[in-house]
Amino acid sequence: MKEQPKTLLQMNNVTMRFGGVVAVNGVNINLSEGRLAGIIGPNGAGKTTVFNLISGVYDPVEGDIRFRDQVISGKSPSEITHLGIARTFQNIRLFKGLNVFDNVKMATNCRTEYSFMEGVLGLPRVWRQEKESAAEVERYLELVGLLGYENTWPENLAYGLQRKLELARALATKPALLLLDEPAAGLNPTEIRELMDIIRRIHKELDMTILLIEHHMDMVMDICEELWVMNFGKVIANGDPEHIQREPEVLRAYLGS
């Protein structure tokens, strides 16, 4: 058997307040390396805020967040991306001025090494790295099924394809931890099945740890190995899907009894 999996992401007693509203209240999350896990909970439970805290969009008021035993709370979003965490957005945020290909390619920028001066002078190293990135981009586009759309503008893509493009863009930063904020929102059942396959492939083939927020329960229960349930800013349950489904606290949060 393999040794005990290492902890990749750790949130210790993290609290986030906006004025008088406590969006996240003393949350503890311990995510092991290699997991495909999910956060579920009613609207306004603080799930997206947790993602914003992990990705550095917000700094927590209390508590700390560790990634590979390094404290990342307080670091800027770009630094955190460089450390190996990537995310998608609930409300799609693609770059409208860049075509599909460049939307993904820009995400490889954080790994290209040439400097500003090399870039404007167009030195050979620049072209070599640009070529390498281009090959990578094709791979990610293939993985999510967007090959052939390279020169399309993102706003002209169907909604489901835009979601896939966001996914490819996040992958292109080559993260160790991938955060997916409602990847299935707005997709039809066929597209959701496709997406589940893609997520499984990413998890297995690219060996990524994945944490996702989702409202489609059948999808979550099917693909996630571990779940956290949030309500009113707090984690009310944690465990594997079968265990979660029987938890009375969870049933109360969802059914309101």
Binding site: V57, L94, N109, V126
Partner: peptide, 20 residues
Amino acid sequence: SKLGRNSLAIRNDELAAKVM
């Protein structure tokens, strides 16, 4: 080069650019 892509990304959505 990546400089142009970075700039365009910032122009379109600065937060997303940071997160990427």
